[in-house]
Amino acid sequence: MAKRLRDYGLQSERLLWPTKGPSRFEEELGAEELERALGLTTLEKAMRWAQTRSMWPDTFGLACCAIEMMSIVSARYDIARFGMEAFRSSPRQADLLIVSGRVAHKMAAPIRQIYDQMLEPKWVIAMGACASSGGMFNNYTILQGVDRILPVDIYVPFCPPRPEALMEGIIRLHEAHLAGVPPAYERKEVAT
């Protein structure tokens, strides 16, 4: 017997009339199982799918890692496959902040301002050793990791990371988001 919409747990006013026969919609589909003809999902999953497929980064190149970040836009490590080649200049239009490079104390205030200007949901990738932990610079002027001032979702190591490594980080971010992991600002405080 064909499954009805209410067998899927969907509520509708037609279902309050239990003895009603199959609707026009269900007759037209004619499928044994509705899954063969329709894609069923929840609103959250659909939104996550859309957000993942077009997560636009902010142009935030600081130092050497910025050059490798530019090369993922280039033709060989094409990031347009993931819908991310549109680097937005304005943080208000961006979803993803890739902190690529060492963060000096003087730059910490502008970074925080840019992060605050981004609209939620927003993610942060700390690209490279310097953004993750201060890297090879342990001195008076370099912030020992951008997670001192921003909640970070993904850390990508190496100095500078290969473009493939950065893409692995981005793909893991996509997978985490699809699986329902909330962005970092909901999960953690900044490290002190």
């Binding site: 610079f137 342990n138 001195n139 008076y140 002027t141």
Partner: peptide, 14 residues
């Protein structure tokens, strides 16, 4: 003045 010899290197202990 950071580059003076009596100014510490800063950073955190590792």
């Amino acid at each position: 003045h950071p580059l003076r010899k009596d100014y510490p290197i800063g950073g955190e202990p590792v």
